[in-house]
């Protein structure tokens, strides 16, 4: 009986040890599986990180290259575009808005007082340098010269008029023709005639018949605006 119990106990003990051993092995096996799973996750993260880092390096290099290229190109392109636009406007302005002398020359020929013989012995058209500023040297001087060239003009003409009749009527007539001088009105403003009656020359001594009176005509506008073709 005692022997039988001993055998039974040994069997039970063996079974217990087996259970314990199997439990421990199972636990360690599951722990190992879990560790492998975590390891695989870690490996995936490592691979993803490497790929992302490679991509970052590529994009960063591309960005740096593009930035350094554009940092050079953009200001240059902006400066070039703005400069050619400014040049274009200046060219258009110079081509369209320049003074023409032929209308003045034509006016001098076409407009005469009908009751008097009239001629010029000097005509002078000059730039108005006052409006353009001082003409110095160097770049400022050149710019002032250009401004004067495109700026206002002054006209001064002198001559003799042969009057046969009233000075007052002649003066009225001169004022009337001054308003008809379209070319001058556009370019230099309305001309003003001045008769120097005190310096008149009377041929033959009969001042009622005919006399030569020196005159001056002046015109200068403050703002030049061309109506040129």
């Amino acid at each position: 009986m005692f022997e039988l119990n001993l055998i039974k106990d040994k069997a039970k003990a063996r079974q217990r040890r087996r259970v314990i051993f199997l439990s421990v092995v199972s636990i360690l096996f599951l722990a190992g599986l879990l560790a492998i799973f975590v390891g695989s996750l870690f490996w995936k993260e490592t691979t993803d990180l490497k790929t992302a880092n490679n991509e970052i390096a590529t994009v960063e290099k591309k960005l740096t290259d593009m930035k350094s290229d554009l940092d050079v190109r953009e200001p240059a392109a902006r400066k070039r575009r703005n400069s050619v636009i400014e040049a274009w406007y200046e060219d258009v302005s110079v081509r369209q808005d320049r003074p023409y002398f032929s209308p003045i020359i034509k006016d001098l020929v076409e407009h005469h007082p009908s009751t008097a013989r009239f001629w010029y012995n000097s005509v002078s058209i000059s730039t108005n340098t006052e409006g353009a500023g001082p003409r110095g040297t160097g770049a400022e001087g050149a710019a002032a010269s250009a401004k004067a060239l495109m700026g206002t003009r002054g006209l001064e003409a002198g001559g003799y008029i042969q009057i046969e009749g009233s000075d007052i009527l002649t003066e009225v007539e001169l004022r009337t023709i001054a308003k008809q001088m379209d070319g001058m009105l556009k370019l230099v403003g309305e001309p003003k005639f001045t008769l120097d009656v005190s310096a008149e020359v009377v041929p033959g001594g009969d001042s009622e018949a005919s006399r030569y009176v020196p005159f001056t005509m002046r015109a200068a506008q403050t703002q030049f605006t061309s109506n040129a073709p």
């Binding site: 110079v94 010029y120 005509v123 002078s124 058209i125 001559g159």
Partner: peptide
């Protein structure tokens, strides 16, 4: 002033009678 080949801007003119 109406030349098509060139743009010429007159600056000043002095005309002295004979």
């Amino acid at each position: 002033e109406s030349l098509e080949q060139f743009v010429i801007i007159p600056e000043s003119l002095l005309c002295k009678g004979d």
